[in-house]
């Protein structure tokens, strides 16, 4: 059985200006110990996908529908509040984009760290504090014993992000969902945090969903990558084939637009136009307006389905499936 198995997830926001389709028909699964990267430009639905799984979105305006989202057999979409509470913060840990919004500024770090332990485990306050201290040390907070009782504002941005990681991991979750945990940090601090996540993952055997818009970060950390565009999955593959032979034109465009993969000084590929307005219906492929390969057939009917093109590689481009688009290596 998969650790996580999501089938046909849809999330819509019902707002005054219309129904906004933030996530459409997202299906994927995750094994124990596996790291899945979720990439795509801002607004593509990465955060909403993960927040929907944990039912963290305010409803209204959010409306979540789907076949199921099973975590170790429990359907998160239909679980009772009590069942969800037993899973969130205990079996699934979360790190959010902005540490300051998810740390309580009026509560000492120590209290925030031991809270999930006191709720979910039969543990004395003393033992919980000992675990909190050990956790702070393992996320690389110098002088942890003295810092344990500080307030969040006494920490730098990088330290707060490490505290967030400590909070997410202290209950030894089976799944960690990390939403751009290093985007706001310097590369040197980012490197520390990524090494830490890898180390803890090895030690705890946990699965990770890692959201990022940085292809570099994803390439070093993830086993498998899922690319989102306009609320849909457009390509999913093991990390090596995604970088070596991207199939979907959007994935290819992303790679051609980053300087790290291009020779110095060359003109970078730029996508024309903008992502589509998700409050309007889209005929056919949602990438068609910006796709250099689009034909009339791409703009009609249903949105192309995500279909396998090779073992462990699937994508949603009609023309690549028909063999009409050569991959980079075949040029």
């Amino acid at each position: 059985m998969h650790l996580l198995d999501v089938s046909e997830l849809h999330t819509r926001f019902h707002t005054r200006s219309g129904v906004f389709r933030a996530v459409t028909n997202v299906s994927f699964s995750l094994e124990r110990g596996e790291t899945l990267g979720l990439v795509g430009e801002s607004g593509s639905g990465k955060s909403v996908t993960c927040a929907s799984l944990l039912r963290l979105l305010p409803s209204p305006p959010a409306r979540i529908e789907g076949n199921y989202a099973r975590f170790d057999g429990v359907d998160l979409l239909r679980a009772s509040d009590a069942e969800l509470r037993a899973i969130r913060g205990k079996r699934i840990g979360m790190i959010f984009q902005d540490p300051m919004t998810s740390l309580n500024p009026y509560m000492r770090i120590s209290e925030q760290l031991i809270e999930p332990l006191l709720i979910h485990e039969k543990i004395s306050r003393r033992d919980a504090l000992a675990r909190a201290l050990a956790m702070l040390e393992s996320v690389g907070i110098n002088d942890a014993a003295r810092r344990l009782h500080s307030y969040p504002h006494e920490f730098s941005g990088g330290m707060r992000q490490r505290v967030m990681i400590a909070m997410a991991l202290i209950a030894r979750p089976e799944l960690l969902i990390a939403d751009e945990p290093t985007t706001a940090l310097d590369v040197t601090v980012q490197a520390q945090i990524l090494e830490l996540i890898k180390k803890l993952q090895r030690e705890l055997g946990m699965a990770v969903i890692f959201i990022s818009h940085d292809l570099g970060v994803v390439s070093g950390l993830c086993d498998r990558v899922m690319v989102m565009y306009a609320g849909r999955i457009v390509e999913t593959a093991d990390v090596r084939s995604l970088f070596k032979s991207p199939q979907h034109p959007y994935t290819r465009a992303l790679q051609r637009s980053i300087p790290a993969l291009q020779a110095k000084g060359t003109e970078l590929y730029t996508l024309p136009g903008l992502p589509p307005d998700l409050s309007k219906p889209i005929a056919g492929c949602s990438f068609a307006e910006r796709c250099e390969f689009a034909t009339a057939a791409c703009r009609t009917g249903e949105s192309p389905a995500v279909l396998a093109s090779a073992p462990a590689h699937a994508h949603a481009c009609l023309r690549a499936h028909a063999g009409e688009i050569l991959t980079a290596n075949e040029h």
């Binding site: 980012q190 490197a191 940085d214 570099g216 994803v218 390439s219 070093g220 990390v239 970088f243 790679q255």
Partner: peptide, 8 residues
Amino acid sequence: SAVPRPDP
């Protein structure tokens, strides 16, 4: 050395 590169 801290900069992640898009090369698995």
